[in-house]
């Protein structure tokens, strides 16, 4: 081993990398990884509890515990109409949180080493996670709406407006996922991801128009709700579902947040993912 020169020349003489991955192969890899996440859910159905049970529990609690106080006794029906669109906004956020713990878990378990030594685009692992989480998000929204209809929810907007409200929630949820992916890549354990996420989640969730109108809040909090993307998303969804009120302003603020969050956290998360050892 004293020879300082390589006897075996590299395959490509110009340093080119023959292993570039085409679009079709990339889609196939993402498909295989989506399947992986779905099979995980099949083996461990409890991981769907947050998507299935949370909307049910939250809607029942809020309608019957706070509904009377907010909309007046016996007037819970009116509160359902107020609450459900707001909770659509919340679902995206709560479900998005799970992606952080999932990514963290993969790195801790060493399965990520396997993926990263395979001839696949590293991003396909993240994209597959996001696709599956979006699916869970839509499931949670569907269950929420189903519960809402049982409790007397009525849709006053057009089908297009209805779809727009759901799409807006999903787009914002997807943007939030990058924050949680970044978090999942930065902290040591999935529990830490949850803890940190809760710190961000609670003020955004309750300091908003999701559960109660903001006019009765103190001035500083009302000011906060005006910029809180969850508040804006709730307002936009409410206007779209109920067919009244301004849509454009809150929708634009929500989209603005989604774009800003993605633009900042996605490159950071992708870089962290590439360089994490």
């Amino acid at each position: 081993m004293s020879a300082a020169t390589m006897t075996v020349p590299p395959v490509g003489t110009t340093g080119g990398d023959e292993g570039r991955i085409g679009l079709r192969a990339n889609l196939r890899h993402i498909g295989a990884l989506v399947r992986r996440n779905l099979v995980q859910i099949k083996h461990d159905p409890e991981t769907l509890f947050d998507a299935v049970l949370m909307p049910v529990i939250f809607i029942l609690l809020f309608v019957y515990v706070f509904g009377g106080a907010i909309a007046g006794k016996g007037n819970q029906h009116a509160y359902v109409q107020y609450l459900v669109p707001g909770m659509m906004a919340m679902m995206g956020m709560n479900i998005a949180m799970a992606v952080g713990s999932g990514v963290n878990e993969d790195f801790r378990k060493g399965v990520m080493d396997r993926f990263r030594t395979m001839p696949i685009a590293r991003s396909s692992v993240l994209i597959a996670k996001i696709v599956v989480e979006l699916g869970r998000m839509l499931l949670a929204i569907a269950i929420l709406l189903g519960m809402g209809f049982l409790l007397g929810l009525e849709i006053h907007g057009s089908l297009l407006e209805f779809a727009t409200a759901i799409a807006l929630s999903a787009v914002f949820g997807a943007a939030l996922m990058w924050i949680f992916i970044l978090l999942g890549l930065s902290v040591k354990t999935p529990q830490a991801v949850q803890g940190m996420a809760m710190l961000v989640l609670m003020p955004l969730q309750f300091g908003s128009s999701i559960f109660a109108p903001t006019q009765q809040m103190p001035g500083w909090l009302e000011a906060f709700t005006k910029v809180n993307p969850l508040s804006n998303l709730a307002d936009a969804a409410r206007a779209l579902l109920n067919g009244q009120g301004a849509v454009a302003h809150p929708a634009l603020i929500t989209l603005g947040w989604a774009v800003a969050i993605t633009a900042i956290t996605m490159p950071l998360a992708v870089r962290k993912f590439r360089t994490k050892t």
């Binding site: 590299p10 490509g12 080119g16 023959e18 399965v111 030594t117 001839p119």
Partner: peptide
């Protein structure tokens, strides 16, 4: 396997297998 580990990582990944100290399989999958 004929690939430079820094300049041709993708090509290299087609030619190697790694079994670590920690089993790198998905524990939730069969």
């Amino acid at each position: 396997a004929g690939c430079d580990v820094v300049r041709q990582p993708r090509a290299l990944r087609r030619r190697i297998g790694l079994t670590g100290q920690y089993a790198s399989v998905d524990e939730k999958l069969s």
